[in-house]
Nucleic acid binder design. Sequence first.
DNA 1: TTTTTCAGTGAACACTTGTTGACTTATTTG
DNA 2: CAAATAAGTCAACAAGTGTTCACTGAAAAA
Lengths: 225, 225
Amino acid sequence: MRLRKKNNDDSEAASGSSGGPRDERKLRTRRALMDAALELIQGERSFSSISLREVAKVAGVVPAAFYRHFSGMEDLGLALVDDSFRTLHTMMREARSAPLPPSNLIANSVATFLKYTQDHRPHFEFIAKERYSGSSAVRLAIRREIRLWTSELAADLAPFPKLKSFNGDDLRMMAGLVVNTVIAATELILDVDTKDTAEVARIHRNAEKQIMLIFLGAAAWKSQA
Amino acid sequence: MRLRKKNNDDSEAASGSSGGPRDERKLRTRRALMDAALELIQGERSFSSISLREVAKVAGVVPAAFYRHFSGMEDLGLALVDDSFRTLHTMMREARSAPLPPSNLIANSVATFLKYTQDHRPHFEFIAKERYSGSSAVRLAIRREIRLWTSELAADLAPFPKLKSFNGDDLRMMAGLVVNTVIAATELILDVDTKDTAEVARIHRNAEKQIMLIFLGAAAWKSQA
DNA sequence: TTTTTCAGTGAACACTTGTTGACTTATTTG
DNA sequence: CAAATAAGTCAACAAGTGTTCACTGAAAAA
């Protein structure tokens, strides 16, 4: 109990600190479990309706082995939230480091984002499905991440000259509106047949227009009115 | 098979056509099953994670009796979608028949709507949870209803003088934005402790501002730009 | 080399699950 | 009144559930 390290929760192997063949193997299985869950989520089923045993089976592992990595399904769910939003933050970092030209900025940003969600479908499908129907811990984690994302966007928006008249609260309010709109479009696209490019394009255009409408309103906004 | 009426799906009793003691009883049990499902949904669980047997138990009925009313859980889910949106349409009809004064119209509408969602929490919680995580049939049904709702709102919005410059498509686009915003606020409120009036008020104000921002943009909008 | 650690195994457990078929019993129908 | 209808009951089923425990065997530590 003192010097023993039980290490039931991957706290070490998850970060791949030492990197021996054993840690690597553990990491692989952990990923296999997470990927298995994401795979089972695709289409009809939701995370709360899949079983620990199914996840283990798809991951090619006996059910008991699951517990070497997660304390239960809820734990797995939280890990998937982290995983999914890491994906999102990576994208936003890339976007900032290679900024788009100011002309057609909105249309390009929307296109970039929606393209990204389609390329990482499993993660975003997981988020969309668990956002409201998951356990309260998972829901809370997702809401926290979205709030964070909203704040990031607000910070990115602040320098724009047209948004001078916004105070901090109202800027977050506006960013929240943009995030909501983008999320709604994402969720629609996820529910559409990938090959139905016409419908996907329609959703794109709609989201673009909606965000343009928001910015049009922003140009006329006066905080503390 | 010809003159026999098996009546496995409540098609008659659901509408309560004849109204005898038997039909009334059947209707009561049907409602009990639906209410049981809504009750089980409250809080942690989601519709896809509750079982037919649990629903039957809460409804005070043996599992086999469930099949006298619904062919399975998915069928129950579709019935709940209908039920929930009937609630919503009732509200919108009431709102139109007793129109609010034009001053503070937005703030009043938002307040009315959000109040309503809190008074019919189970229905709206069901919709929020199943919108993305339910079976495809249920998701489709919900999306269809939301689209309908959006069109209704667009029709209500059309007469406004400030929205002269909108064509039909763009009007639906704007209505969609408003609906999304209201839904997002609703979903946030449902996830907040009912007694946390400060947080509820914060969400109210935020939604109001967001919709005002949209209308501000609308006043500057030119369709087919 | 010997010992320790630990991811993964296999079997067993006590339950819950959806669905079935034959039944009872009150209402409806003729 | 007697016959038919059908909502609800009861018991049984095969299959799947989460969790446990003693185990094996390869990698890590000594």
